[in-house]
Design a protein around this nucleic acid. Structure first.
Lengths: 330, 330
DNA sequence: CTGTTAGCGCATTCAC
DNA sequence: GTGAATGCGCTAACAG
């Protein structure tokens, strides 16, 4: 049952088969226009025949350039990220790159470790919702191209989904429905989006002369985190809550139902990121999700950085809007 | 605004700083027990000071071994896969490997392309729900270690989630409830799981003296694919349906509701993979999901293959069970 | 225990 | 247009 894998052919074997020099084979693959059409054909032919494909590793070592990029996210299984990953994937693919995926579990230490692990085999990295301290981000960005998603660090190219705009719409919507006290259920304290949403709630409630309270959920956003928070939210006297994300909002909804309180008649709930669509019961009002566009933009940015080594201070902002469904008004 | 990135230190610089030979530095990192504790300390010290980290690429070129593996899935955004990816991720991480992620869009050509792209920079690959023809799989597996998930090819190590067992339970459950005609709503025709589920429906209905019909959904499983299939399903005279997966079942549920038919009173629905949990309305009865265990097992298998080059014919099967919720009985 | 030497497979100067 | 030579950063024999 033993079986040896045959080593893949090298550039030298192709050179021999095509009766040319190694450099000619190399050129046939990288800059064919430098060679006579006839030679190119002969080389490619031989390569085809031998099943030769340039060795990424050797090429990278020689040029110092990799055709890989890494995408690091806090939690693959959080429904927010797969569409983002998907979008990045698609662009990476078009560019004929390979994608490394890293999962930090919302842990800055783990994130730091991953950045280190990927370093040296990628052309650049995209950090989505990075939980790293600003200093670490700057340190990494000084050494290699980095693009941030949902993290605002001056001087580092970043793509920001401005959920603030959508959250302000949400507060206005709730105000119009007559709510006077609005609760915000928090997400990870290291999350830029969380801070942004919290600030938007503050700003909007103040402007509209409403009260707001914030209720802390556990560190990692989850259905259960939202659910156990329900009682506490109800005790604040709020009649409406905006949750850090849809998953938390979904749990909150369940927790409120556990208390026998009708949504939206006696309590209104708004989520963020609109990842659950109409699957909750009642269908969740939420702030729109532009993660796929963010993924696309991030790769485009990174791609630009790879072309021109000048570091540019790009701040790409995507606005969001409120998507009204049945948890706020029937 | 121009800025040059400083190149990372090489093994030689560390060697100079520690006043030893390059090989000593190399050993300090790969086989410290070969060196005197004192030397190791001195080398690691110098490395730390210079911010040195071994270059993956150079190491891989020299040893021919990579510390990367690739995981290829049909659709990252399909809720079935993120937990699987997550599980693989976790194991990969423990082993100090890096993970490439590939997305095939259910397209065999794309899958083939990805395998080629990753080849040469990975120690091995895991193909989840591969849509590749058997011949292609064999061809690839002959060249490099490959582990399959949810694809049964003799001679290639594979991890199979036996949804058949759960589907048979589902049919028995429906039979006990008095259903006589059961519809199966298909998934991708190239999917091993789809064939397996279809066969289970056939087997179980025959054994229990029930009728079954199959209704084809569009190629890519989706909410909409399920929804538009509803009318057709109802026309068959079936009073219960088992769908290829939860996402399709979810759509089916919506389509049936569109027709004004009450679930589960007048029609019963069963999903597969249990990825939606209790989020549908009514909560979906489904066949349990063991994707995380499959991911774990797949990496363990791959890891074993990397240790002993002997190709082994492993067939690791995970049983499933029916999870009864509200779409079959209230 | 540690230094010496020789590649890994390729891109890239130079020459011709 | 093409060939010859050099080195990317590292590991792995082989010596001592």
């Amino acid at each position: 049952m033993e079986q040896r894998r045959k080593p893949s052919p090298t550039i030298d074997q192709v050179a021999a088969a095509a009766d040319v020099n190694r450099s000619t084979v190399s050129r046939a693959f990288t800059r064919p226009q430098m060679l006579s059409a006839e030679t190119v054909r002969r080389v490619l032919d031989a390569a085809e025949r031998l099943g030769y494909a340039p060795n990424h590793t050797a090429r990278a070592l020689s040029t110092g350039r990799h055709r890989n990029i890494a995408l690091i996210v806090p939690d693959v299984a959080n429904p927010y990220f797969p569409p983002l990953i998907r979008a990045v994937q698609r662009e990476v693919d078009k560019a004929d790159f390979c994608l490394f995926l890293g999962n930090t579990d919302e842990d800055p230490k783990q994130e730091d470790k991953l950045v280190g692990r990927f370093a040296g085999q990628v052309a650049g990295m995209i950090l989505a919702s990075s939980r790293l301290p600003e200093a670490r981000i700057r340190a990494h960005a000084a050494v290699r191209p980095i693009v941030l998603i949902n993290r605002d660090v001056a001087g580092i190219p970043r793509v920001l989904i401005d959920s603030g705009s959508g959250v302000e719409e949400a507060v206005a919507h709730l105000a119009a429905l007559g709510h006077k006290i609005i609760a915000y259920v928090t997400g990870p304290s290291t999350s830029w989006s969380n801070r942004q949403r919290l600030q938007a709630v503050r700003r909007a409630t103040e402007r509209l002369n409403l009260k707001h309270v914030t209720v802390a959920a556990t560190a990692v956003p989850s259905f259960d985190a939202g659910r156990v928070t329900a009682k506490q939210v109800l005790r604040t006297g709020a009649t409406a809550a905006i949750a850090f994300d849809d998953v938390t909002a979904h749990g909150l909804l369940a927790g409120i139902a556990d208390e026998g309180i009708d949504v939206p008649k006696r309590f209104a709930v708004v989520g963020c990121d609109d990842v659950l669509g109409a699957v909750t019961q009642p269908a969740l009002t939420s702030v729109s999700n532009r993660a796929p566009e963010a993924g696309h933009a991030a790769f485009t940015l990174l791609s630009d950085m790879l072309q021109s080594p000048a570091i540019r201070d790009v701040r790409y902002v995507l606005e969001t809007h409120l998507v009204v469904r049945d948890t706020t008004v029937r």
